[in-house]
Simulated scan of single mutants.
Amino acid sequence: MALSHPVTAQEKSEEPQNETLRKAGDIATQPARDVGAVKREVPSVLLAAAESPYASDDLANCAAIAGNIAALNAVLGDDYDVPRAEDKQDAGKMAEAGGKFVVNTILPFRGLVREVSGAAAADRRLEAAQDAGIARRGFLRGLQVARKCRRTD
């Protein structure tokens, strides 16, 4: 697993822009995913979390725990206790909702098409893996506290 590294001020200012671009790309490719032309892969770290969310075999020290948390943060985004800029987040959510609405009206009978194409099942698998990743991260945070590890993120 990747070890976490200190985030520079420049990287912090680029994170919201990168997230905005990622969301825009997700919205734009939604119709292709709905008909099964484009598939999203479940990241391997989430597959491992889904397989065994409470495994502690590879958690011999604090660095290993931090590395596992960093790998999960890379695919799940920031944990719940990381401060967020609320004003920009609210405006971004409104823009995202508007974009999704426009794109989702392109495909008639979208729900039925998603079920037939397998896109809905694929999304359910991804969401289940994300839930397992969140559970794994919570387990790792608890282990960090129990072992009195210094939090690095």
Rank of each mutant, 00 (worst) to 15 (best):
A97W: 09
K88G: 08
V75H: 05
D90T: 13
A97Y: 09
V75W: 04
A74C: 02
A66T: 07
Q89C: 00
K93C: 07
L72P: 00
A70N: 02
I65W: 07
D81I: 05
Y80N: 07
A85G: 08
V102M: 09
G77I: 05
P83H: 09
A64C: 01
A71F: 02
F101M: 06
P83T: 06
I69E: 03
I69M: 11
M94H: 13
A70Y: 13
A70I: 06
A64F: 08
D79P: 03
A64H: 06
A95V: 14
M94I: 15
Q89K: 13
I69R: 13
V82I: 15
I69V: 12
A64Y: 01
A66H: 08
N73M: 08
N73L: 00
A71T: 10
A85E: 15
V82N: 07
A74V: 01
I69S: 00
G92V: 09
K88R: 14
G99R: 12
P83K: 05
G77A: 02
G77S: 05
E86C: 02
A97E: 11
I69H: 00
G77K: 02
N68I: 00
V82Q: 04
V102D: 04
Q89F: 13
G98K: 11
A91D: 13
E86D: 12
K88Y: 15
G99Q: 10
D87A: 13
A91C: 08
A91N: 07
G99N: 12
D78H: 08
K100H: 05
K93D: 14
P83I: 12
A91G: 04
D78W: 09
A95D: 13
V75E: 07
F101D: 11
A85F: 15
Y80T: 03
P83D: 09
G77P: 03
A97T: 08
R84V: 15
G92Q: 07
E96N: 12
A71C: 01
